[in-house]
């Protein structure tokens, strides 16, 4: 590893600090847009229909709700840094524990979806570039247009309908075995693979327009070989950066997918939290996804820099 790379990593980590603090700040201040008082919600959850004024005041004091906004934020931040996100209103368990239980499900789907997205987007980009003037290219661009105009949940529902109801070859929900993984990952990767594939197609076209590709063509190399060996390695960098960004879309999309396929992952946790007005849990969800997303993106940036230090993707 060169000195520049180490320097780059150092800068990256330093630039992460304000972003992480900002994310925690947004997460914390989200509570303040809720209608009603937190103590009322807690008392409501605990089943007490009519709480006395004294109980409310006591709870307010316990939760520190009478302190100023900044004091509350500082308390909360210190707790978070100690790995304590508080307890769920609904289940009473610790939020960290709760997230920890849900992670495996979402991780499996997310990894599958990212793998499939990579595969599909490479295929889409390469094929639609290779056949860009033919009927296949036209068909693929039509397919892309359709995919980008359909809400993700509709794709998932249609897949369930065709594969589970009409053909009956896939389970429609749950994650009992590998076959339960197929439909959720496919429905998550279809849309994002088209988006990334279109970027790849554009990048490939840009590279093929440059002199080294034209010269290679003049030397008599086949189109296929130029595409795969000359243009692809240069065009793939922005695509890797986009894949990093799409982990965010996948984390967000998992809410809908887990709802449709009834998978007990992080997204389902968020929906449950909203349903039971379990605000600490929802906070934990936002904080966790934010941190994961930022981390993944930073790692992708570092990898890209290590591969090609000349390329600063963020400046484009």
């Amino acid at each position: 590893m060169s000195i520049q790379t180490i320097q780059f990593i150092k800068n990256k980590i330093i630039s992460l600090i304000p972003v992480l603090i900002g994310i925690s700040f947004i997460t914390f201040s989200l509570v303040f847009i809720t209608p009603g008082n937190p103590e009322d919600i807690i008392l409501e959850q605990s089943g007490m229909t009519v709480a006395s004024e004294g109980e409310r005041l006591q709870l307010r004091q316990e939760l520190g709700l009478d302190d100023s906004f900044w004091v509350q934020y500082l308390h909360w931040l210190i707790n978070v840094l100690h790995g304590n996100l508080g307890n769920s209103f609904h289940t009473g368990r610790g939020i960290v524990e709760e997230i920890y239980m849900r992670i495996p499900y979402t991780t499996i789907i997310a990894c599958g979806a990212i793998g499939l997205t990579t595969l599909f987007s490479l295929l889409y980009g390469l094929v639609s570039n290779y056949y860009s003037h033919g009927r296949i290219g036209r068909l693929l661009s039509l397919y892309g247009q359709v995919c980008l105009s359909v809400p993700g949940f509709l794709i998932a529902i249609m897949l369930v309908y065709f594969f589970c109801e009409v053909m009956g070859i896939m389970p429609s929900g749950g994650l009992t075995d590998v076959s339960g993984l197929v439909l959720p990952t496919i429905s998550m990767s279809l849309i994002s693979s088209v988006m990334i594939g279109q970027v790849l197609n554009r990048q490939l076209a840009l590279e093929l327009d440059k002199y080294y590709c034209k010269v290679a063509r003049l030397r008599g190399l086949s189109r296929k070989r130029i595409l795969l060996e000359y243009a692809l390695p240069n065009a793939v960098m922005p695509v890797i950066a986009m894949l990093g960004n799409y982990t965010g879309a996948i984390l967000g999309g998992s809410v809908v997918i887990e709802y449709i396929f009834s998978i007990p992952g992080l997204g389902a946790m968020a929906l449950e939290a909203i349903h039971f007005r379990d605000y600490p849990m929802l906070q934990g969800y936002v904080l966790f996804t934010g941190i994961v997303y930022v981390m993944v993106n930073s790692i992708v940036d570092i990898v890209l820099y290590a591969i090609n230090p000349k390329m600063d993707l963020r400046e484009r």
Binding site: V31, T247, I274, Y279, L282, Y285
Partner: peptide, 24 residues
């Protein structure tokens, strides 16, 4: 730039769901 990085640091859909959820 820092503010933008913060807002883009939380996945868009997650933030959207959380805000809509907190608001009711």
């Amino acid at each position: 730039n820092v503010i933008c990085n913060i807002f883009q640091g939380i996945p868009g859909t997650c933030l959207m769901i959380a805000i809509a959820g907190f608001w009711g």
